[in-house]
């Protein structure tokens, strides 16, 4: 496994995590600084424009009080289709195994942004390949569905970029991780 690819993947995951969690353009730009030059430029381009549009688009996609087309929680994609299901409990278990837990107690732990941030942490902290593969298998595969929905519904270039990069992160299999 090349360290470079692992670092790049971690950077992408951390960037996407911030994109799924925040609509503050500065926070997102900050997260983009670790990306490779080309990706970073694409992110900068997608973030150009009216900052307020990012929040509007984010709410429309993920939180709309008229019903949102792309719920960002893994449990919503399970068979039951409701929040706080098995993926929430499993995500919490993963976080705790590394000594952390979500700050927001009243929100599901299986948010796409949290899972990606945690995966970035696993990559960065040199977690063994089996662990990476297990987390990926349990908590990242559904992101393909989410990325498809975001790709379908996003009008803002930033979320089209997020959708595309998320799809690549899920599809890029790690060397040695199966």
């Amino acid at each position: 496994m090349s360290t470079g690819s692992r670092e790049q993947l971690a950077a992408r995951c951390a960037f996407l995590a911030r994109g799924f969690l925040s609509t503050d353009p500065e926070a997102v730009r900050q997260a983009a600084t670790l990306l490779a030059a080309q990706e970073r430029q694409a992110a900068e381009n997608a973030l150009a424009g009216d900052a307020a549009e990012l929040e509007k688009e984010y709410v429309r996609l993920f939180l709309s009080p008229s019903g949102a087309p792309c719920p960002p929680w893994q449990s919503a994609y399970s068979e039951e289709g409701t929040l706080m299901g098995e993926p929430h409990a499993s995500a919490l278990e993963w976080y705790r195994s590394k000594g952390v837990e979500p700050v927001r107690e009243s929100e599901p732990a299986d948010h796409a942004g949290m899972l990606l941030a945690f995966y970035a942490h696993l990559l960065e902290s040199q977690a063994p390949p089996e662990e990476l593969a297990a987390f990926r298998q349990q908590h990242l595969m559904w992101l393909r569905q989410l990325s498809e929905l975001v790709g379908e519904h996003a009008r803002h270039p930033f979320y089209r970029l997020v959708a595309e990069m998320t799809r690549r992160v899920v599809d890029d299999s790690l060397p040695g991780s199966g």
Binding site: R96, K98, G99, V100, V103, H121, S125
Partner: peptide, 23 residues
């Protein structure tokens, strides 16, 4: 606190608004 948690590095530290040390 976060960086004090087991094995936490810069990535997790930058998500201090999202994760905290486990209770």
């Amino acid at each position: 606190q976060i960086t004090g948690a087991a094995g936490a590095g810069p990535v997790l530290a930058s998500f201090g608004d999202v994760f905290r040390p486990a209770q």
